[in-house]
Design a protein around this nucleic acid. Structure first.
Lengths: 108, 108
DNA sequence: TCCATATTTCATGTATTAATGAAATATGGA
DNA sequence: TCCATATTTCATTAATACATGAAATATGGA
């Protein structure tokens, strides 16, 4: 992942409401969640939620698919993995001081 | 790290200039870099640079220390590790679909 | 076709962010 | 003390982001 894409993705999740949304979608798994269900979980209005989902979608972090009357959103695992990979490898792990302890924590 | 702190840190690095700055500081290691050296690396004006460093500092991602006439900035490794830890563990790795492959990549 | 449901789009107002150049502050040396 | 260097602060302007509610769109069923 290039830095410009990483910046877009980071900006998308650098927002309390949007970060909560993507965490809900990750927990929901591949089945995803309909927009209405997300609005209930996030306790926000439909239009606000729709704008937040659009931002996440433009950053490539979520995908959507119509199912009947609902539109179901899912987290894009590949893109999230790419973002974490960028931060771990390209950005921060040029310093083993940062990622050494972190990797140890993750491996336990 | 709590989500509200993570959002602040993410917002701080969700900017091309600031992300480049912190990458330079990480590569520079514990010695850090003076503001002037950073301005040259980033090819930006002093006042713009100062504002960007202030944003990173308010997010807790960098520290500063006067050395003679210069002010030397260093990346805060602990805070960066905390942020990555939050994203890996609290946020995204509730799904092993994301972090399984990622950890494999990191371990090779 | 008509209606209820589900979601997005649009227009608006407000707040936040970002870059810029000039002025101010702090330090060390002559 | 005076001066050059290093950096920040300030005021201004432009751009972007955010939330809101009303209206528009799309779907499925009666």
């Amino acid at each position: 992942m290039e830095q410009s894409n990483a910046v877009k993705a980071l900006a998308a999740i650098a927002h309390d409401g949007r970060l909560s949304l993507i965490r809900h979608l990750i927990q929901a798994g591949p089945t995803g969640l309909a927009a209405g269900a997300l609005a209930q979980l996030a306790q926000t209005s439909n239009s606000t939620l729709s704008a937040q989902l659009l931002t996440l979608s433009n950053a490539g972090l979520v995908r959507s698919q119509r199912q009947g009357r609902s539109i179901v959103y899912t987290a894009d695992y590949d893109k999230l993995g790419d973002l974490l990979g960028f931060m771990m490898m390209d950005c921060c792990c040029s310093s083993s001081d940062i990622c050494g302890p972190l990797l140890q924590r993750l491996q336990t």
